[in-house]
Amino acid sequence: MIELKVNGVRRAYYGDPNMPLLWYLRDEIGLAGTKYGCGVGLCGACIVHVGDSARQSCLTTVADAAGQEVTTIEGLHPDGNHPVQRAWRQHDVPQCGFCQTGQIMQAAALLAENPNPSDEEIVEGMSGAVCRCGTYQRILAAVKTAAEEV
């Protein structure tokens, strides 16, 4: 049995400890905001927070998260109004929207660690999260806006 906390809720898991956190979140507890895009840590659509750091949940097993606090997009802010989420809306960032939950989780972790990032630091920090619609210039702008509030 593995115990972990997801968005503040205590969870017990009895299945395969090697199941990636991504599929545990999506299939086992129905948190669909975390997305599958590549399964091998190359796209960032599945980024969540484990403790304070951004993790690709497709490369993190449930066992890796044992005893830890996992935060998904659904738990980032009670009303969905984290400064990063608000900045995303201010800049109308999403097109298809699919990757944006991972982008937002990455950006929130980046700003928590570095509240005043330079453009170069934002680009480096966000480079693991792919957006096929190509919303990058708005992502950059939104992270900068959010940084003013964090």
Binding site: L31, A32, G33, T34, T72, I73, E74, L76, G80, Q85, W88, R89, D92, V93, P94, G97, Q100, T101, I104
Partner: peptide, 9 residues
């Protein structure tokens, strides 16, 4: 869909 796309909904 802006709100839903930024909250996982």
């Amino acid at each position: 869909d802006l709100y839903d796309m930024t909250t996982g909904g």
